[in-house]
Design a protein around this nucleic acid. Sequence first.
DNA 1: TCTAGTGTATAAAGACAATGTACAATTTTG
DNA 2: CAAAATTGTACATTGTCTTTATACACTAGA
Lengths: 128, 128
Amino acid sequence: MHITVDEADGRPIYRQIADELKALIARGELAEGAQLPPVRQLAGDLGVNLNTVAIAYRELQAEGLLNVRHGAGATVAARDAGRERPSEEELRKPVRAALTGLVLAGLQRTEIMALVGDELRALLKGAK
Amino acid sequence: MHITVDEADGRPIYRQIADELKALIARGELAEGAQLPPVRQLAGDLGVNLNTVAIAYRELQAEGLLNVRHGAGATVAARDAGRERPSEEELRKPVRAALTGLVLAGLQRTEIMALVGDELRALLKGAK
DNA sequence: TCTAGTGTATAAAGACAATGTACAATTTTG
DNA sequence: CAAAATTGTACATTGTCTTTATACACTAGA
């Protein structure tokens, strides 16, 4: 489980952790039912407080991606566990933001589509 | 100039404004040299403090997208104005995040590429 | 020059993020 | 079954970030 936090990232630490866990789940490296490390262990590895990790776990639980049980650990939830799907617009907004950055960086249409295809391939490499 | 701020967005208001302005610039609706509304006007339209807008303007100036002059207004900078290009990783990170969301929402590869192509087309519609 | 219009600086209030410590639930061990 | 170890949770505290109100400074035009 390779997770890192970047001081200069801008996003709060708990969100960085949550996002990285999401990515691991999306690509299947954390399969359905898999046990996550205890908050203390992950917190120790990252050099942050255990509560910071706990907040990340709870955020993913709220999205239906994790099952967190007091006393026992946290596990990856079933893929169709009753998590409400984000709205169409909710999904498109980050796409638009990312593409805006690429356009402003001067990339051409074909370069952009290639880059996206590239990332998507990497993401789906080991996925469900 | 249609800009809106969303209370429930999570991101700070000044960043929402900055991101929307970026999108307008990327798609050419705010062309090179175009004058931006005064901070007080935009702030009034959005119902926020003028400083909040000013912070957004300054952020874009720091990225080399705007020329802000004390006393005169803010204008869109030349497209190749000495703005340092974000690193490759800096560009890919948002792409990865957006794609992660799409994958977790259950979209298939072809659906994702179609959605991205769709957004990119909209973005490049009137661009430079 | 004066005035209206523009961005800027500063301080204060409130919200948020990260932490330290103590608590509660579960699992393991004997 | 009881005790200990392991795990997540609650809460108060500290510091940082956001947003605001108010006053200031620069520019352009009459």
